[in-house]
Design a binder for these strands. Structure first.
Lengths: 229, 229
DNA sequence: AATAATAAGTGTCAAAAATACATTTCCAAA
DNA sequence: TTTGGAAATGTATTTTTGACACTTATTATT
């Protein structure tokens, strides 16, 4: 007996992306104003529908690229949302993804070509459907992931200062950290390259720039090292 | 303008359940032999298809109930799998859930009414499709969850000994734990009720039985307590 | 009644990790 | 040369984790 797949229901599957950025010491999300009904004119996550011939990861990347021009960034599947009436227009499920992007690298295109806008996580407007729930789930996941894997760097410029890194973690974890303890911990991990360059934008003395040493990190990983912050 | 939902593809959405149990000091999963093509006769997770009128959580519960007679147990959504050809019969996505059940409470019905069989996680057969990947992801999730929330008790009888609890955590974490340190840690959490009863099945002295004190736990939760093992 | 067998139950010390905390240094601008 | 301001730096204390071995309670056996 072959299973009769035809007798089963098929569903519309949306993919929605929570896009995180970091700027001015704040964790931000990228939102768009929805330009069609239902809920036209309201703020929304970036979304689209899964096509028959693509995997979810691919759909998430396609949607991100299409709505922001951004490609090739860190993304992770978050959760699938399925409340019957979550979309008042039509029965739709949604698989949420979150992405981490370096705001500086993408600022211009976003503002000009796309109707997208950054909001500080704490001041974001209320969103359509269950998107607020998605965002808060994404923040939780980001908190966990950022304290067990070195993904914070995805939100910073390639070269960054210790202060930036600390402010980033403070924003993600939503708590103040002690500067000396933070630096000691980071240095203890031994996965950064300290450059000879300094960033002089914030002080006369200038502060040294660092880069994440991906190669060193993956070597250490193989030797049983585990990132913990 | 109203969005034209009709032009979007719809997909078949399966729900597969990884069902964990604990017995004889081992972490186990419940599998069934598939009785239809494709892959008829091979071992598989419990699965079914999402219906148009139900949410994923409800589908997972329905499928669990239908295939095992089990109801009302701990379940958590795990991940959505979408590789194009994951099911050779038909393009299908699958949302995986895992469940924790108390084997003792359900043993008879499972063996008699249903063609389900328990396998130790380490000795389970190779499964159809991407089910092996689902299982290993579920184990990871279970490890994390069990060390940050008191869900281990879902796998034990209502009354259990310290030794059982320790063996359970050893099985979940896949590492030996020190008896004294473990007991000290558990007692430090102060979320168990020590009963006057003893279990005499494993020694002449007998060992005290404990119960999880749900009420105490949720009170402590509200006061900022967080379970950590 | 004494003994033997077996798992249950119990505490301390040392090492490591986390936390709290204040001063000096460097550089450019005035 | 002085000054302002952020960057850089180390130590002492507390807390947590990890290692480790003997006594107790009970019943079955003699």
């Amino acid at each position: 007996m072959i299973y009769n797949y035809e007798s089963e229901d098929k569903v519309l599957l949306a993919v929605d992306c929570i896009i995180f950025g970091f700027d001015a010491e704040e964790l931000k999300i990228l939102l768009i104003k929805r330009d069609f009904e239902p809920e036209k004119g309201k703020w929304s996550l970036m979304g689209g529908f899964l096509k028959n011939h693509e995997a979810l990861d691919d759909a998430a990347n396609r949607i991100l690229l299409h709505l922001t021009g951004i490609n090739n960034v860190y993304m992770e599947q978050l959760y699938s949302f399925s409340k019957i009436d979550r979309d008042p227009g039509q029965r739709t499920l949604s698989v949420a993804y979150y992405a981490l992007i370096k705001i500086e690298d993408h600022n211009e295109e976003l503002n000009q070509q796309y109707a997208a806008e950054w909001f500080s996580v704490s001041e974001a407007p209320s969103l359509i459907f269950d998107h607020n729930i998605m965002v808060s789930r994404a923040i939780n996941r980001l908190r966990y992931r950022a304290s067990t894997e070195p993904i914070g760097f995805e939100l910073l410029p390639k070269k960054f200062t210790m202060r930036q890194l600390q402010k980033l973690y403070e924003a993600i974890l939503d708590e103040k950290l002690d500067k000396r303890n933070f630096i000691n911990k980071i240095n203890g991990l031994d996965i950064l390259i300290k450059l000879d360059e300094k960033d002089k934008s914030s002080s006369r003395k200038g502060s040294f720039l660092y880069m994440f040493d991906e190669e060193k990190y993956s070597n250490k990983l193989e030797q049983g090292f585990s990132f913990k912050l």
